[in-house]
Write a protein that binds this DNA or RNA. Structure first.
Length: 139
DNA sequence: GCCAACGTTGGC
DNA sequence: GCCAACGTTGGC
């Protein structure tokens, strides 16, 4: 069971919108980067990921679940890229900010810290557990 | 608003 | 196939 992180600008697609899309979820389209694509292709139904707000907020705000594995992205004219469907599971008890992540030595190797531009990232189980613990939640 | 990091494009 | 130029992203 792998863990992931989905990064989004709130002005483009926010956690509130993800919540509003309910149990049916939505497609996570628009990925146009080959490394991010590789991660999307590795996702299995039922795996979970963090939902991160970039730019102004810069914090992990919620948890999503992959409900449909990789399939073609209809908004990609080149036909090279695909997407998965995700649904909101629950918000974090409190958002975990990038500042807080950077302050944790155990999180220093997170992709979010070292390659912040990558829009879809893998998260190690230890990182996943620690962040939930910081948020006051049971991993 | 600035700029570093990264990816893509195109000339050679 | 290399690499300079350019565009985009996202943290600060």
């Amino acid at each position: 069971m792998a863990y992931w992180l989905f990064k989004s600008e709130p002005s483009t697609w926010s956690w509130d919108q993800q919540i509003a899309s309910g149990a049916k979820g939505t497609f996570w389209n628009g990925v146009r980067n080959h490394l991010a694509k590789k991660h999307l292709m590795a996702m299995k139904k039922g795996e979970r990921g963090f939902f991160y707000h970039s730019n102004d907020e810069r914090a992990i705000v919620g948890i999503v679940e992959v409900i449909r594995p990789y399939y073609p992205d209809h908004t990609d004219e080149s036909g090279k890229f695909g997407m998965v469907d995700v649904k909101a599971i629950k918000p974090l008890t409190r958002p975990i900010s990038l500042v807080e992540i950077k302050a944790e030595r155990a999180l220093a190797d997170m992709v979010l810290v070292n390659n912040s531009r990558l829009s879809v990232q893998p998260v190690l189980e230890a990182e996943w557990r620690l962040i939930l613990t910081l948020a006051g939640m049971k991993p």
